[in-house]
Write a protein that binds this DNA or RNA. Structure first.
Length: 448
RNA sequence: GGCCCUAUCGUCUAACGGUUAGGACACGGGCUUUUCAAGCCUGUAAUCGGGGUUCGAUUCCCCGUAGGGUCACCA
């Protein structure tokens, strides 16, 4: 890393499926690395597989990357499909130099070619440096003269990658650990075409709970970046979680902005073993980041998710605090709406007489008597006194005298109609004097 | 199976030969003067096993064991 200004890394997904969270982490670590070292990150679409490559997947990857805040230029990606002439040139040169040859093959399976291009393997031991794992030595003899292209117009992956990295001036290759065994053969190809060898770093995998490689089979939708966007996760939280999965700056604090992560980033401190993906911790991160949001940002999201008959801006403003402390991701608001935890703020709730009675030893008569007393106390207050703290000091003496449960439970149910809700003082403050008294009156009518 | 990589609480991790093995998530308990949530305090919990090296090993070496990766005319 002595030549900082010359660092060029790349992120080369093949658009053959939805953007995978493990891939996102690899992209992120590439991003941290170049940002930290003042390098450049290039985007390449490995779309040589005509059958499986789809534009919608490419779009999903790009939008996922942008959502995560990876601010690199996606406007003119390097597409493998646009470089067949280049591969052909190198292939023909290798054959002319006698470093590769056209080999006649026995066709064993459908789709196999009778002629392919193989590299003449010098059969030596190759040692390369991995920034995470140190030196790795592999004997390439066992590879034999491996296939590098089906024809001069159809290079296979390893060959295309080496040519692309060379053409793009890539100096640092940071990829998943499954790339470790691709490296020796790619190095052999590099040497054959006279390309310089980049520095490597192979990242450990993100794992399922049983320590196998994170799979859609086991983790379901949790593997796709799109899922987190749709569920209403904050990209900062996802980035922070992913960054600390398999790496940490040695601090006790784990909530850290991207800027700080970048400034502290050190790829040599990346863990060598894989890490199990922990959705609970991600949720915790998300909540941490939600707690740092401004009321305006919260209100905007709530408004977006509330049904048509709950679009009262003034009420939404009052609710944002109690909602945010009950959710971990934005889509939890949808659940609250579906569960009926929202509706009662906007219209008189329906509830039964039994629900008004304190379950631990209260009677309907007590509920009625206490609601009348509460009602009288509230009627004596000014509108301006409808503040949670003041209401509490106004009503608690009564609650202490008559029994907290016997006073506060009926009051809370009268206001919310629910088994679970914010405390009655907060509710009173939200509804104000007039609406509060009206709801209590409605409850009293039921108790008669 | 060959080759390679890896191994600290359930999970993510700190420790770069000497710590009561630290933190976070999750979990348990308690406090916040009804319920829910949030918050605060607090507790349980780990060095895979066996040999070395060393005055001393989580740390260095070897052997096991376990897990993972990889052995394509896929990317």
């Amino acid at each position: 890393m002595s030549n900082k200004s010359h660092i060029v890394a790349r992120f080369p997904p093949s658009p053959t499926g939805p953007f995978h969270i493990g891939n996102a982490r690899t992209a992120l670590f590439n991003y941290f690395f170049v940002k930290k070292n003042g390098g450049k990150l290039l985007f390449r679409l490995e779309d040589t597989d005509r059958e499986r490559s789809k534009q919608e997947y490419a779009d999903d990857i790009v939008s996922g990357l942008q959502w995560l805040g990876i601010d690199i230029d996606f406007s003119h990606p390097y597409r493998q499909s646009a470089h067949s002439a280049t591969y052909k040139k190198y292939l023909e040169q290798l054959i002319a130099d006698g470093k590769a040859y056209v080999s006649k093959e026995e066709v064993k399976e459908a789709g196999q070619r009778a002629k392919v291009i193989r590299l003449k393997n010098p059969g030596k031991k190759v040692t390369f440096t991995d920034m995470i794992r140190g030196d790795i030595t592999v004997d390439t003899a066992e590879l034999g003269d491996f296939v590098i292209a089906k024809s001069v117009d159809e290079p296979i992956y390893h060959f295309a990658v080496v040519v692309d990295d060379f053409e793009m001036g890539v100096t640092h290759v940071i990829r998943g650990e499954d790339g470790i065994y691709n490296t020796p053969r790619q190095i052999l190809i590099q040497e054959a075409i006279g390309a310089p060898r980049p520095v490597y770093a192979h990242m450990p995998f993100i794992l399922n709970a049983d320590r196998s490689k994170l799979s859609k089979r086991q983790a379901g939708e949790l593997v796709s970046v799109k899922y987190y966007r749709e569920k209403g996760y904050l990209p900062e939280a996802v980035v922070n979680y992913l960054a600390f999965l398999g790496w940490n700056p040695g601090t006790t604090r784990e909530v850290m902005s991207v800027e700080e992560i970048i400034s502290r980033f050190d790829i040599t401190k990346v863990q060598k073993a894989g890490a199990i993906f922990n959705p609970e911790k991600l949720l915790w991160y998300n909540k941490e980041y939600m707690n740092r949001l401004s009321p305006m940002e919260i209100d905007k999201e709530i408004k977006k998710r509330f049904p048509k008959n709950c679009q009262n801006d003034l009420m939404i403003e009052k609710l944002s605090e109690i909602i945010v402390e009950r959710i971990s991701v934005w889509s939890d608001i949808d659940k609250m709406v579906a569960d009926g935890d929202i509706q009662y703020f906007f219209e008189q709730p329906k509830f039964s007489q039994e629900m008004l009675v304190w379950k631990k030893g209260g009677t309907a008569a007590e509920a009625r008597e206490n609601l009348v007393l509460v009602s009288e106390k509230l009627a004596a207050l000014a509108d301006a006194d409808f503040d949670a703290e003041r209401l509490k000091s106004a009503l608690m003496p009564l609650a202490e005298e008559k029994g907290r449960g016997n006073v506060l439970w009926p009051l809370r149910v009268a206001l919310s109609g629910r088994e679970k809700s914010p405390d009655p003082f907060v509710l009173l403050a939200i509804f104000g004097k007039k609406e509060s008294l009206a709801r209590i009156a409605a409850a009293l009518a039921l108790l008669k």
